[in-house]
Design a protein around this nucleic acid. Structure first.
Lengths: 169, 169
DNA sequence: GATTTAACCGTATATAATCTGGCATTAATG
DNA sequence: CATTAATGCCAGATTATATACGGTTAAATC
């Protein structure tokens, strides 16, 4: 079973609701209903269902990171000194505590973790790197500073999914 | 001048509003007002101002990517064959068109672009990589598949910002 | 110290969310 | 094939919320 609730398959309208909500999370239910060609009641019922079944995890404002002091981003590749699970656990536990670490991915390939940092500027990088290097188990790091954000999609390409591969349960 | 509107400095309440909205984007204004110790009117005025001044760029639902057929992520490092600006432009133009490319960052370091892909599964990776390799100017690529998402913060750590470095305008 | 400005609050009105009951369509069942 | 059950929808009524307005306070300015 899935998410504590039996999830039926999503139909065209559900997809349309999800797609609309991920772009306009604060749209009025009345307007959402119009957009998906439904009246208000079944529309809000579907939204509530999508929330309860876990397709929608929450809502959030998209903030302008530059204007709020986080205009710089950097990626750090981290290699740990040993690949035992307790070393991994210690590192994970510590890295998630650093607020400037926006993302931390364990990856397969030439290193162990890929971190994405958000920073006010390049001066701030120095102190963050010092923290990263001091994290438990860290053997070496390599940094790539982002020069330009070419694309940064928050949303999923739901409309492009109506084809092969993993159909939404 | 900034964003077509003269932006005054953000006070404690503004920060609190932004922080709340990035976590609960669909909170009722009445409840938001309570949370930041304001009555409804000035609260909504501030939200409207923050939107107009560009601190809030929009709102969106957070969707469960696994349940919607995008449970796998991968990073691809891309090196272009020449570093002339027209090669860069062509590549950029083409890469943003691929819906599975969630992010594309131009970076300083050993390669030129770092892409983040969202995929249904590993089988889907093959066809996407073929597309990436065929993009104009691509000399070589290196892929890192995400084994585990240790952290994936959508929001900015606003509360931790009340210190040094770039103060919000 | 008077005047202006800015920010707030409370109230009133407009708008939207939510609940209820009933209808239509479809699927399951006898 | 007819009946029943289930599902999904709509419309209207009620409750709650958003929004606009006028007035008050407090700070800033001259």
């Amino acid at each position: 079973m899935n998410q504590s609730v039996k999830a039926k398959a999503l139909d065209r309208i559900d997809i349309s609701i999800l797609d609309t909500l991920q772009k306009e999370g604060r749209i009025a239910n009345v307007d959402l209903a119009k957009k998906v060609n439904l009246s208000a009641s079944p529309c809000i019922d579907r939204v509530k269902r999508l929330e309860k079944e876990g397709f929608i995890e929450g809502y959030g404002a998209r903030l302008n990171s530059s204007k709020l002091g986080y205009g710089t981003a950097a990626f750090i590749q981290v290699t740990l000194d040993r690949t035992t699970s307790d070393v991994f656990d210690k590192f994970r536990e510590a890295v998630v505590m650093i607020p400037q670490v926006a993302e931390c991915h364990m990856v397969a390939g030439g290193f162990d973790y890929l971190l994405k940092l958000r920073l006010p500027n390049m001066e701030a990088y120095r102190s963050i790197l010092a923290q990263i290097v001091d994290l438990p188990g860290v053997a070496q790091t390599h940094t790539y500073v982002v020069i330009e954000q070419v694309k940064n999609d928050r949303g999923l390409p739901l409309k492009h999914h109506a084809d092969a591969s993993t159909p939404p349960l």
